[in-house]
Protein backbone atom coordinates (compact mmCIF):
# COMPACT_ATOMS: atom_id res chain seq x y z
CA UNK A 1 0.00 0.00 0.00
CA UNK A 2 1.37 3.37 -0.98
CA UNK A 3 0.01 6.88 -0.64
CA UNK A 4 -1.27 7.05 -4.24
CA UNK A 5 -3.30 3.89 -3.91
CA UNK A 6 -4.66 4.87 -0.51
CA UNK A 7 -5.71 8.30 -1.80
CA UNK A 8 -7.15 6.65 -4.91
CA UNK A 9 -9.24 4.27 -2.84
CA UNK A 10 -10.38 7.09 -0.56
CA UNK A 11 -11.34 9.15 -3.59
CA UNK A 12 -13.31 6.18 -4.93
CA UNK A 13 -15.00 5.75 -1.57
CA UNK A 14 -15.79 9.47 -1.43
CA UNK A 15 -17.39 9.31 -4.90
CA UNK A 16 -19.63 6.42 -3.90
CA UNK A 17 -20.65 8.15 -0.65
CA UNK A 18 -21.34 11.48 -2.41
CA UNK A 19 -23.64 9.70 -4.86
CA UNK A 20 -25.55 7.82 -2.17
CA UNK A 21 -25.89 10.93 0.00
CA UNK A 22 -27.04 13.05 -2.94
CA UNK A 23 -29.80 10.59 -3.78
CA UNK A 24 -30.77 10.05 -0.16
CA UNK A 25 -30.79 13.72 0.92
CA UNK A 26 -32.59 15.06 -2.15
CA UNK A 27 -34.82 11.98 -2.39
CA UNK A 28 -34.01 12.09 -6.09
CA UNK A 29 -31.67 10.52 -8.60
CA UNK A 30 -32.26 13.16 -11.27
CA UNK A 31 -29.22 13.62 -13.51
CA UNK A 32 -27.69 10.26 -12.60
CA UNK A 33 -27.32 7.59 -15.27
CA UNK A 34 -28.87 4.32 -14.10
CA UNK A 35 -27.08 2.63 -16.97
CA UNK A 36 -23.66 3.66 -15.67
CA UNK A 37 -24.68 2.46 -12.21
CA UNK A 38 -25.75 -0.92 -13.63
CA UNK A 39 -22.36 -1.19 -15.33
CA UNK A 40 -20.53 -0.34 -12.09
CA UNK A 41 -22.52 -3.00 -10.23
CA UNK A 42 -21.48 -5.49 -12.94
CA UNK A 43 -17.86 -4.32 -12.58
CA UNK A 44 -17.75 -4.86 -8.81
CA UNK A 45 -19.59 -8.17 -9.03
CA UNK A 46 -17.29 -9.60 -11.69
CA UNK A 47 -14.12 -8.35 -10.00
CA UNK A 48 -14.86 -9.09 -6.36
CA UNK A 49 -15.91 -12.71 -6.81
CA UNK A 50 -12.39 -13.42 -5.52
CA UNK A 51 -13.72 -12.43 -2.08
CA UNK A 52 -14.65 -16.09 -1.68
CA UNK A 53 -11.47 -17.56 -3.19
CA UNK A 54 -8.58 -15.46 -1.93
CA UNK A 55 -7.82 -13.33 1.10
CA UNK A 56 -5.53 -10.33 0.61
CA UNK A 57 -6.05 -8.23 3.72
CA UNK A 58 -8.81 -7.00 6.03
CA UNK A 59 -8.62 -3.61 4.27
CA UNK A 60 -9.09 -5.27 0.88
CA UNK A 61 -12.02 -7.40 2.04
CA UNK A 62 -13.81 -4.54 3.80
CA UNK A 63 -13.41 -2.16 0.85
CA UNK A 64 -14.69 -4.75 -1.61
CA UNK A 65 -17.77 -5.38 0.52
CA UNK A 66 -18.36 -1.63 0.89
CA UNK A 67 -18.19 -1.07 -2.89
CA UNK A 68 -20.51 -4.00 -3.57
CA UNK A 69 -23.07 -2.93 -0.96
CA UNK A 70 -22.92 0.75 -2.00
CA UNK A 71 -23.30 -0.17 -5.64
CA UNK A 72 -26.35 -2.36 -5.15
CA UNK A 73 -27.69 0.19 -2.65
CA UNK A 74 -27.48 2.84 -5.37
CA UNK A 75 -29.35 0.59 -7.80
CA UNK A 76 -32.02 -0.02 -5.16
CA UNK A 77 -32.47 3.72 -4.58
CA UNK A 78 -32.56 4.50 -8.31
CA UNK A 79 -34.73 1.70 -9.62
CA UNK A 80 -37.00 1.02 -6.64
CA UNK A 81 -37.18 3.60 -3.87
CA UNK A 82 -36.85 6.79 -5.92
CA UNK A 83 -37.79 5.28 -9.24
CA UNK A 84 -40.16 8.17 -10.06
CA UNK A 85 -37.25 10.64 -10.09
CA UNK A 86 -35.11 8.60 -12.48
CA UNK A 87 -34.53 10.61 -15.64
CA UNK A 88 -34.70 7.71 -18.10
CA UNK A 89 -35.56 9.91 -21.09
CA UNK A 90 -32.03 11.30 -21.05
CA UNK A 91 -30.36 8.00 -20.10
CA UNK A 92 -30.29 6.36 -23.50
CA UNK A 93 -26.73 5.18 -24.07
CA UNK A 94 -26.76 1.65 -25.52
CA UNK A 95 -24.76 -0.30 -22.95
CA UNK A 96 -24.53 -3.43 -25.09
CA UNK A 97 -22.07 -1.45 -27.24
CA UNK A 98 -19.81 -1.33 -24.18
CA UNK A 99 -20.50 -4.71 -22.61
CA UNK A 100 -20.09 -6.89 -25.71
CA UNK A 101 -16.69 -5.52 -26.79
CA UNK A 102 -15.48 -5.86 -23.18
CA UNK A 103 -16.60 -9.51 -23.09
CA UNK A 104 -14.83 -10.25 -26.38
CA UNK A 105 -11.70 -8.35 -25.37
CA UNK A 106 -11.59 -10.15 -22.00
CA UNK A 107 -11.79 -13.50 -23.79
CA UNK A 108 -9.00 -12.52 -26.18
CA UNK A 109 -6.60 -10.53 -23.98
CA UNK A 110 -6.21 -11.85 -20.44
CA UNK A 111 -3.50 -13.16 -18.12
CA UNK A 112 -5.00 -16.64 -17.84
CA UNK A 113 -7.91 -18.35 -19.56
CA UNK A 114 -9.83 -19.25 -16.40
CA UNK A 115 -13.32 -18.17 -15.39
CA UNK A 116 -12.30 -15.92 -12.48
CA UNK A 117 -9.43 -14.34 -14.41
CA UNK A 118 -11.63 -13.60 -17.42
CA UNK A 119 -14.26 -12.07 -15.15
CA UNK A 120 -11.56 -9.93 -13.50
CA UNK A 121 -10.29 -8.83 -16.92
CA UNK A 122 -13.83 -8.09 -18.11
CA UNK A 123 -14.40 -5.94 -15.01
CA UNK A 124 -11.22 -3.96 -15.69
CA UNK A 125 -12.21 -3.29 -19.31
CA UNK A 126 -15.80 -2.49 -18.41
CA UNK A 127 -14.83 -0.13 -15.58
CA UNK A 128 -12.74 1.91 -18.00
CA UNK A 129 -15.81 2.79 -20.05
CA UNK A 130 -18.65 2.43 -17.50
CA UNK A 131 -18.90 6.19 -17.01
CA UNK A 132 -19.74 6.85 -20.68
CA UNK A 133 -23.55 6.63 -20.25
CA UNK A 134 -23.23 9.21 -17.43
CA UNK A 135 -21.05 11.54 -19.51
CA UNK A 136 -23.43 11.06 -22.43
CA UNK A 137 -26.33 12.03 -20.19
CA UNK A 138 -24.53 15.19 -19.04
CA UNK A 139 -23.78 16.12 -22.66
CA UNK A 140 -27.39 15.43 -23.65
CA UNK A 141 -28.90 17.64 -20.97
CA UNK A 142 -26.02 20.12 -21.32
CA UNK A 143 -25.53 20.48 -17.58
CA UNK A 144 -24.92 18.72 -14.30
CA UNK A 145 -25.77 19.62 -10.72
CA UNK A 146 -22.73 20.61 -8.66
CA UNK A 147 -23.07 17.53 -6.48
CA UNK A 148 -23.07 15.30 -9.58
CA UNK A 149 -19.93 17.13 -10.73
CA UNK A 150 -18.23 16.45 -7.39
CA UNK A 151 -19.16 12.78 -7.74
CA UNK A 152 -17.69 12.61 -11.24
CA UNK A 153 -14.54 14.44 -10.17
CA UNK A 154 -13.90 12.08 -7.23
CA UNK A 155 -14.60 9.05 -9.43
CA UNK A 156 -12.25 10.25 -12.16
CA UNK A 157 -9.52 11.18 -9.67
CA UNK A 158 -9.56 7.65 -8.26
CA UNK A 159 -8.20 5.95 -11.37
CA UNK A 160 -5.87 8.86 -12.09
CA UNK A 161 -4.27 8.29 -8.66
CA UNK A 162 -4.04 4.58 -9.43
CA UNK A 163 -1.87 5.48 -12.42
CA UNK A 164 0.63 7.06 -10.01
CA UNK A 165 0.30 3.97 -7.81
CA UNK A 166 1.24 1.77 -10.76
CA UNK A 167 4.23 3.94 -11.65
CA UNK A 168 5.34 3.73 -8.01
CA UNK A 169 4.86 -0.04 -7.89
CA UNK A 170 6.76 -0.50 -11.12
CA UNK A 171 9.84 1.14 -9.62
CA UNK A 172 9.47 0.15 -5.96
CA UNK A 173 8.12 -3.39 -6.26
CA UNK A 174 8.89 -4.37 -9.85
CA UNK A 175 5.18 -5.02 -10.12
CA UNK A 176 3.08 -4.08 -13.10
CA UNK A 177 -0.10 -5.29 -14.76
CA UNK A 178 -0.42 -4.06 -18.33
CA UNK A 179 -4.14 -4.86 -18.59
CA UNK A 180 -4.94 -2.69 -15.59
CA UNK A 181 -2.52 0.05 -16.62
CA UNK A 182 -3.79 0.46 -20.19
CA UNK A 183 -7.44 0.29 -19.13
CA UNK A 184 -6.66 2.76 -16.34
CA UNK A 185 -5.14 5.20 -18.81
CA UNK A 186 -8.22 4.92 -21.07
CA UNK A 187 -10.48 5.41 -18.05
CA UNK A 188 -8.64 8.52 -16.87
CA UNK A 189 -8.47 10.02 -20.37
CA UNK A 190 -12.26 9.74 -20.70
CA UNK A 191 -12.60 12.10 -17.73
CA UNK A 192 -10.17 14.72 -19.03
CA UNK A 193 -12.77 16.86 -20.78
CA UNK A 194 -14.91 16.74 -17.66
CA UNK A 195 -11.91 17.60 -15.42
CA UNK A 196 -11.31 20.69 -17.53
CA UNK A 197 -14.92 21.86 -17.14
CA UNK A 198 -14.89 21.02 -13.43
CA UNK A 199 -11.79 23.08 -12.73
CA UNK A 200 -12.75 26.03 -14.94
CA UNK A 201 -16.43 26.20 -13.90
CA UNK A 202 -17.53 24.21 -10.87
CA UNK A 203 -14.59 25.21 -8.66
CA UNK A 204 -15.35 28.86 -9.45
CA UNK A 205 -18.83 28.39 -8.06
CA UNK A 206 -20.56 28.07 -11.40
CA UNK A 207 -22.82 25.27 -12.46
CA UNK A 208 -21.39 22.82 -14.94
CA UNK A 209 -23.03 23.90 -18.15
CA UNK A 210 -21.84 22.88 -21.57
CA UNK A 211 -21.56 25.52 -24.28
CA UNK A 212 -24.65 25.44 -26.51
Amino acid sequence: MNIFRLLGDLSHLLAVIILLLKIWKTRSCAGISGRSQILFAAVYTARYLDLVTSYISAYNTVMKIVFLVASYGTLYLMFLKFKATYDHNHDTFRIEFLVLPCVILALLINHDFSALEILWTFSIYLESVAILPQLFMVSKTGEAESITSHYLFALGTYRGLYLFNWIYRYYAEDHYDLIAIIAGIVQTVLYCDFFYLYITKVLKGKKLQLPA
Partner: peptide, 10 residues
Protein backbone atom coordinates in the same frame (compact mmCIF):
# COMPACT_ATOMS: atom_id res chain seq x y z
CA UNK B 1 1.54 -10.26 -13.12
CA UNK B 2 2.57 -13.87 -13.49
CA UNK B 3 -0.24 -16.23 -14.37
CA UNK B 4 -2.20 -17.13 -11.29
CA UNK B 5 -0.86 -14.22 -9.25
CA UNK B 6 -3.53 -12.68 -7.06
CA UNK B 7 -4.96 -9.27 -7.82
CA UNK B 8 -4.21 -7.31 -4.68
CA UNK B 9 -5.79 -4.01 -5.72
CA UNK B 10 -9.39 -2.89 -5.69
Amino acid sequence: PETGEEHDEL
